[in-house]
Simulated scan of single mutants.
Amino acid sequence: MLESIGVGTRLQRGRTYARKGQVISLAVEPGAVSAQVQGSRKKPYRVRIGLQTYGKAQWAELERELAANAWYLAKLLAGEMPEDVEEVFTAAGLSLFPADAQDLSLDCTCPDWEVPCKHLAAVFYLLAESFDEDPFAILAWRGREREDLLINLRAARDSGTPAADIAEHSGPPLEQSLESFYSLQAELPQRTGYSSAPDALLDQLPEPGVVVRGRSLTELLRAHYQELESRS
């Protein structure tokens, strides 16, 4: 994206600064990325990269589209960013990333007249890496923090629950039903007894292969089981 708007070729200037740890702070906020970069002077330079945020109506439309797509919704609620999420912005006539260099407001307190200077380039370099680590930061830059987005998506998902499903689970709140929660709600069906042969268990066991006085152990036990039944 940066290469397409003419900034990418200057990123190498800031790479050395970034790799040396010259960027001592970096924060992504709605509409602005702010950073401090240690240059040749004692006092760090202040860097700011501004980007227009989207309004409530625009984000409401985006969130409705995201919530309406089960795949997008599942990925986002699981803390993952769908790879083609930019298509949702495009369909709404918006752009997730800056489409032109004019979309960005670049500022650095250094005396270098060239824009972007190496301090801005260093921040751009680390910013791209931070988006790889946390893609939700891109949305935060456009005006929607991660937690706010997920809360709104859950609300949109819940409001779309079919009425039949809601009615099926409707009832008084639990705190109003504590006294009767464990009480018998209906008569239990009467259990009917059942009978079986006293030696039926032996028919379910494998043959042990043991012979006692010329008779198998199973047959000897069968006689005792039948005798116990006759005495009960």
Rank of each mutant, 00 (worst) to 15 (best):
A27Y: 10
E147P: 03
I49T: 03
R10T: 05
Y45L: 02
R154D: 03
A156N: 08
V115T: 11
A200T: 14
L228F: 06
G6S: 02
A167T: 09
Q185N: 10
P98W: 01
G171Y: 06
C110T: 03
Q58T: 00
L120D: 01
S195A: 14
S40I: 01
A91N: 09
L220R: 15
E207Y: 09
A156K: 13
Q176V: 04
V23Q: 02
S170K: 13
Y54W: 08
Y225Q: 08
I49G: 01
E65I: 04
L188S: 12
Y194P: 00
D199E: 15
D103T: 04
R10E: 10
Q226A: 06
L174W: 09
L149P: 01
L2G: 04
G31C: 05
E114A: 13
V123Q: 07
S183R: 15
A223L: 12
H119L: 05
R231Q: 12
A197E: 15
P162W: 04
E3M: 05
G8Q: 03
D199W: 07
E65N: 10
E133K: 14
G39N: 04
A67D: 02
A70W: 05
H169I: 13
L174G: 03
S177T: 13
I151D: 14
S159G: 15
Q36A: 06
R144C: 07
L202F: 07
A60L: 04
A78R: 09
R146G: 02
E3I: 05
E83G: 07
A67F: 01
E145G: 12
A200P: 08
T192K: 15
E179I: 10
A186S: 11
H169V: 15
W141S: 02
Y45D: 00
R222S: 06
R19W: 02
T90Y: 07
